[in-house]
């Protein structure tokens, strides 16, 4: 199994351990990832608010790069960050459906000598693991089953919304299934896809912190030992502001928040450092 890999900006900075753990786990499982050359920002949500045409041009440059690098036929481009995944998928879908938009974006690509033919399939690592690799095979690779570990899965927003290319838009289960495959207990909770507020922890911190407080509090009420997530911004918000939130609301909301490949890596018996676990603010005790 071979895929092109689009890291996006966060996986090179605050979400570094997402990249580290995913690369380690995929390598261990024999899934080959090749980084996209010369990629640029995915456009993200903030960009769309200023200039949509420009945001979509920026995004489609990455799609064009993938075709350049990936050869002929259909190209699978893996984007682990939820915002990147959604930005690429949404742009691709809108270009397919709207002639006017497509024409103007293609023209912009043309002005810098690039073209996009619509051959890219945007994929998320969760989708790859469950649908291409398979949970049965993952189960066989487990060396240290995660017994007695209560896991809540936090999908965040943009992995199954607005376009649901895999799983379910309001009740996704892939991460829960992965956790169970690893031998852990997947705790059901009502917050799987409830937004963390994104950059609001910086802009309107009262609101941003409250959204994360509600999430952490419910995870604790559900007696979760750990939160797993698939988005660098979600992980950042949920983990890095725990002290601030605890102080603000006068109750401890401390709980480890890791990327799902980190959890997989532990069950596969990979080295902690390889999984970037030393970078976490809250060290998962169990692991």
């Amino acid at each position: 199994m071979k895929y092109l890999y689009y890291p996006g900006c966060s996986l090179k900075s605050s979400g570094k351990s997402y990249e580290e753990s995913m690369l380690a786990v995929f390598k261990h499982l024999g899934i080959e990832l090749q980084e996209l050359n010369d990629w640029n920002c995915c456009g993200a949500t903030n960009y769309m608010a200023i200039n949509e045409q420009s945001a979509m041009s920026v995004t489609s440059r990455n799609l064009a790069l993938a075709e350049e690098q990936g050869g002929s036929g259909e190209i699978n481009l893996v984007a682990p960050c939820n915002a990147c995944y959604m930005g690429l998928l949404k742009t691709k879908t809108y270009l397919e459906n709207e002639q006017g938009l497509r024409d103007s974006v293609l023209q912009k690509l043309d002005s810098i000598g690039m073209k996009y033919e619509g051959r890219v399939k945007v994929r998320h690592p969760l989708d790859i693991l469950v649908n291409d690799f398979g949970l049965d095979k993952l189960k066989m690779a487990v060396k240290k089953p995660l017994k007695d570990l209560n896991v809540v899965s936090y999908y965040g927003c943009q992995v199954v919304r607005p376009i649901t290319a895999f799983d379910d838009a309001s009740d996704p289960v892939y991460m829960d299934q992965i956790a169970m495959t690893l031998g852990a207990t997947a705790v059901d909770w009502g917050m799987k896809v409830r937004c963390c507020g994104g950059s609001m922890t910086s802009t309107v911190s009262d609101v941003g912190l409250r959204l994360n407080y509600l999430l952490l509090k419910e995870a604790k009420r559900k007696k979760a030992d750990i939160i797993i997530t698939a988005c660098p911004l979600c992980q950042f918000n949920l983990e890095c502001f725990q002290d601030k939130i605890s102080r603000k609301y006068g109750e401890s909301v401390n709980i480890p928040v890791v990327f799902f490949p980190q959890l997989i890596g532990m069950a596969l018996g990979l080295d902690k450092k390889e999984l970037g676990l030393q970078r976490m603010f809250v060290q998962p005790q169990y692991l």
């Binding site: 949500t45 769309m48 959604m86 927003c157 919304r161 409830r194 994104g198 609001m200």
Partner: peptide
């Protein structure tokens, strides 16, 4: 915050 829950529902 562009969480899209309104859009999908």
């Amino acid at each position: 915050a562009s969480c899209y829950s309104c859009t999908v529902e």
